[in-house]
Simulated assay, not measured.
Amino acid sequence: MSAERHDYVADTRPVWAPWRIDYIRGPKSGECFFCVKGARDCLGDHVIYKGRHAFVLLNDYPYNSGHLLVAPYRHLATMGELNADERAEMMDLLIQAQAVLSAVMQPQAFNVGFNVGEAAGAGVKDHIHGHVVPRWQGDTNFMPVLGGPRVVPEALDATAELLRQAWK
Rank of each mutant, 00 (worst) to 15 (best):
N111I: 03
T140Q: 09
P72L: 07
A103R: 08
Q108A: 04
G147A: 10
D85N: 13
H127N: 00
Q108F: 04
P107C: 05
E89G: 10
L94Q: 14
M79L: 15
M90I: 15
Q108E: 08
D139Q: 03
M79Y: 11
L94V: 14
Q96L: 12
G138R: 00
P149G: 07
H129R: 01
V100A: 04
G117P: 05
L69G: 04
L76W: 11
G113K: 04
A97Q: 10
A97T: 14
P149K: 01
G148P: 14
T78V: 13
M90K: 10
L93F: 12
P134H: 00
F142L: 09
L68I: 10
E86W: 01
G121C: 06
G148R: 02
L82E: 13
Q108N: 05
V116E: 10
Q96D: 12
D92I: 15
I95Q: 14
H131A: 04
P107M: 03
Q96N: 13
W136I: 00
A88M: 15
G121A: 07
D139S: 02
H129A: 02
L146Y: 04
A77W: 11
M90W: 12
A103P: 12
W136V: 00
Q96S: 13
A84N: 12
V132T: 04
V100R: 01
T78I: 12
Q106K: 07
Q108R: 05
D85I: 09
G148C: 08
P144R: 08
N83D: 15
A99Y: 06
G138E: 01
S102G: 13
D85V: 13
M143P: 04
G130T: 05
G113R: 04
M105I: 06
W136F: 02
E118K: 07
V112N: 01
F142S: 11
H127W: 01
G138H: 02
Y73C: 08
A84T: 14
A99K: 14
M79E: 14
L101C: 08
G130L: 01
F114R: 07
A119Q: 06
H131Y: 01
G148F: 05
Y73N: 10
P149R: 02
A119D: 07
V145A: 09
V70Y: 02
I95H: 12
A99E: 10
L93T: 15
V104N: 06
H127R: 00
P144D: 10
A77L: 12
T140I: 09
G113P: 04
V116N: 09
A119G: 05
Q137M: 02
G147Q: 07
A103G: 12
D92Y: 14
K125D: 03
L101V: 09
L68T: 08
F114H: 07
R135C: 00
T78E: 15
A99F: 03
A97N: 11
E89Y: 13
A71T: 04
M105D: 02
F110A: 06
V132F: 02
N111V: 02
N111E: 02
M91R: 12
E118N: 05
E118T: 03
R74F: 08
R135L: 00
H75T: 03
R74A: 14
G117V: 03
V116S: 07
F142I: 09
M105F: 10
L101K: 07
N83P: 15
G148M: 04
G80R: 13
